[in-house]
Design a protein around this nucleic acid. Sequence first.
DNA 1: CGGATAAATACAATCGATTGTATTATTTTA
DNA 2: TAAAATAATACAATCGATTGTATTTATCCG
Lengths: 339, 339
Amino acid sequence: MKKRKVTIHDIARELKVDSSTVSRALSNSPRVKPKTRELVLKMADELGYQPNALASNLRKSRSNTIGVVVPRISRHFFSSVIAGIDEITYQAGYNVLICQSLDEFEREKKLVKTLLSNQVDGVLMSVSMETSDIGHLTDLENNGIPLVFFDRFNDGLKAGRVVIDDFKAAYEATEHLIENGCRSIVHFSGPQDVNIYKDRFNGYVSALQKNGLEVKEDHILTSRLMGDDGVSCVDQLMDWPVLPDGIFSANDTAAIGAVKRFRELGVEIPKDVAIVGFSNEPVSSVLEPPLTTIDQPGFEMGKMASNMLLEDIKNPGKRPPAQTITIDSKLIVRKSSIR
Amino acid sequence: MKKRKVTIHDIARELKVDSSTVSRALSNSPRVKPKTRELVLKMADELGYQPNALASNLRKSRSNTIGVVVPRISRHFFSSVIAGIDEITYQAGYNVLICQSLDEFEREKKLVKTLLSNQVDGVLMSVSMETSDIGHLTDLENNGIPLVFFDRFNDGLKAGRVVIDDFKAAYEATEHLIENGCRSIVHFSGPQDVNIYKDRFNGYVSALQKNGLEVKEDHILTSRLMGDDGVSCVDQLMDWPVLPDGIFSANDTAAIGAVKRFRELGVEIPKDVAIVGFSNEPVSSVLEPPLTTIDQPGFEMGKMASNMLLEDIKNPGKRPPAQTITIDSKLIVRKSSIR
DNA sequence: CGGATAAATACAATCGATTGTATTATTTTA
DNA sequence: TAAAATAATACAATCGATTGTATTTATCCG
């Protein structure tokens, strides 16, 4: 049942030609005459030949593979980015090695090592929440492997970036709450090592200041922004003598957790507390009440990041001074914040 | 900036030993003395050596990589399966090549070819909606590459399977509608080539029959079950002289589309029409009204399928008569079906 | 028809690591 | 201390495809 693998040598032997001729025939080189090519193709088919990409890649010292590192595959935003990446890279004939860091630094480090070892032609990545040291990333650079960040990046590296303007988006979100009468606005924030959370934080602060509102230390609740974090943040708030009247959460996941918790506790949204999230996860639109949030076009971002990376791969070495593409995001106003 | 890649030969030259010794030192072979190993390790570190997995894999003729084919990465069920797969395979030291067929047969065929060519050690897959011919899958078999299906499989192949009991789940879902007073139950069905949709259909039929209800041809609406399909199915129903009083959809996506559409049209759920979906996508729990559905434990399925595959990889050839693992699924009753 | 050019193919090295076998160095033991 | 046994290392083939160079074969033209 399991025949030994068929190689170009088998085809060559069968046809009494050299394996180099077979190789060239298979790759449509003009150096073999059409008739020979035909014979080779036929024989290849007959023997059930499957090219061995490993051998080919080794020789050509490229893997035709792109590494993708995301915090979590099952987060909708990331899986849409991956879909976008797939769209582009598939057409370009690349394979995609997908890894998740689970937002753990050690894991991310190991993953990058593996990608390097697998000779990926380029890497697309959104850094983990714990990433502050970037030795593993300069490793990529040193080996001449192009890197493009999407969404979460790390300063200190001159790699390409595809992002949204987190500051602006956060500013708008916060201002939207203010316009809706909120005066005591809490911010659910994430690790400040991660650019996006710092930017969102800054946008929040800036919006308050521009509108003459005080920025209060205790109104910033920092966590990893999982659903449970949203819940426990709400529980914290319930201990306050007076509830805040608005919440700007740095992601939807925590915001959704919060909404559910508030609902359980009988707090009315948006009447008692108005809430705005970030990312426009699919759940947010069907939540009751529907969640106001920032739309982050994951699919688009994935496509653009891939295009940028492929460009970098095509022009090795002479990479232009690290581009940053900023994609438009927009505030999606839904009921959770209107009053 | 970009130094040539460091190989074991560089280390060997530096240390004036043979590359074979270096290789053995790096892989902890007892054939090199501890002191030499130490020297090698130190030198490897100094030179910034990165093993070339391509070369190693070629020589060992295995890739340490597992191929995963799903219809759509961004579908939550599948991304959770992938997360489960990742959990197991990561620990076992495997890489994962993830591909999406987009439910297109041609694409699936090409993907499998690529996986073969990349010498993957095994394949995990959920077949596309269009897959009825299975030549590409027997190719895998012929090359001795283990295959394990999850969720959607194809009879006609003696590969492992990790599934839920779709018949039983559908039976329960339908019976649940009947218990809630539905007498005219429509079924949103998918392509009948795909086992799961056939089974769900059969479960629906069986439940009707066991309960003395007539199975009506025109109550079966077959589509690809995307959100839009749910919408257009509803539009079809609106032309009926009398609306049905229950809908059992073979997936959540279509059910959710239907709920939204009904809401737009002012049809009350569950009062006018009770609805049950399938899969327990995250959106279903926050939908208004929350959707009754079948919970399909994707993460678990991913883990089990991986374990089964790794087992197959470990015992090449002597694969036991294709196992089928059936995971428990359960009906999650929510408001969309209670009356 | 014979030499020149072009076309087609063969030869051989290579990518980087692995591994069976041969050789050298070290230790044991009689 | 010399022979035997063992440890440590070196040699060389190999995985399968690619590619620069050399060689053979076919074509052209005066």
